[in-house]
Design a protein around this nucleic acid. Structure first.
Length: 270
DNA sequence: TGCCAGGCTGATA
DNA sequence: TATCAGCCTGGC
């Protein structure tokens, strides 16, 4: 177990910020995370966090996954103090971090997310993981399933994933898996591209539009200039930024601000 | 029963 | 280039 004191980190806020669909609460202060083929439990009381893994695993994977190297206070300090709405939103979601998640997993997750709600998205991802992912077991015997590789999905019929409750999104996932497997699109190359170029590449995938591409850029590629606009953000922008969100002021960290707004819109109101 | 939810595609004008 | 059905499905 690794114990850390971490500023501006709140695992429950991260779970509810909607960037990860394989995290959840176990009991009181304990949470679980499945990322790719890894499983982790965390407990948190205030700034005190316990990561139930080895030092090596923490250093090699989870520290980067949770973006613990980044000082988030700096992002909040650059907020215009006259922008009361964003100041409040950032205060409310001050424990949010932008995770460094697996690119393939995020592509599929956000393909599934369209015209869908979080409970169903989680269920869909659980279904495809249990059906097509590798079965794993923790040291204490807990069974979980790794996220399925593109190869495991590319050979399916387009409607096959409807059995996993994906509905019309089934063909998006299968065709995208084929594009990855047959080399039409290179995930490793996308990982190295700047934001605009990476987004352009992602938009070539069947079922990936503006919003989904931006979510993938932000939550998998850590392109914090990406600013996904979904219905919630759209409503918030209309209400609070009728002249447009001041992206120039937040150049390079628009995505962080988007997360504060999204979380505030979702849970900050009574 | 009908509507909606963290959009996108493809047809049509 | 813009607009708009239609798409799955479960919960309310």
């Amino acid at each position: 177990m690794i114990e850390k004191t971490i500023n501006y980190f709140d695992i429950s806020q991260i779970i509810n910020s909607g960037q990860c669909f394989r995290m959840g609460k176990k009991e009181n202060n304990t949470y679980f995370v499945i990322a790719g083929d890894k499983y982790l439990e965390i407990s948190q009381v205030g700034k005190q966090c316990s990561f139930y893994c080895t030092e090596q695993e923490f250093k090699n994977f989870w520290e980067h996954y949770f973006d613990l190297d980044t000082e988030y206070e700096g992002y909040r300090k650059c907020i215009n103090p006259r922008d009361a709405y964003l100041m409040n939103a950032a205060e409310f979601g001050s424990g949010i971090r932008i995770l460094n998640q697996d690119l393939w997993e995020m592509i599929v997750s956000f393909l599934i997310s369209q015209q869908n709600n979080i409970v169903r998205i989680r269920k869909c991802i659980q279904n495809i993981s249990e059906t097509y992912g590798e079965k794993k077991q923790t040291e204490d015997g807990r069974v979980y399933y790794a996220f399925p590789e593109a190869e495991a999905l590319a050979g399916l019929e387009e409607d096959e994933l409807k059995k996993c409750n994906l509905g019309y999104r089934s063909k998006y996932v299968v065709r995208t898996a084929r594009s990855v497997v047959n080399g039409e699109i290179s995930l490793s190359q996308i990982s190295e591209m700047p934001y605009k170029k990476a987004k352009e590449e992602l938009l070539k995938l069947f079922g990936v539009g503006e919003k989904v591409a931006d979510c993938i850029c932000l939550f998998a590629l850590h392109q914090t200039a990406a600013f996904p606009v979904d219905t919630h953000i759209n409503q918030a922008l209309k209400r609070h930024y009728p002249k447009g969100f001041p992206k120039r002021r937040y150049k390079g960290c628009e995505g962080i601000m988007q997360q504060y707004i999204f979380y505030y819109e979702l849970l900050g109101k009574e």
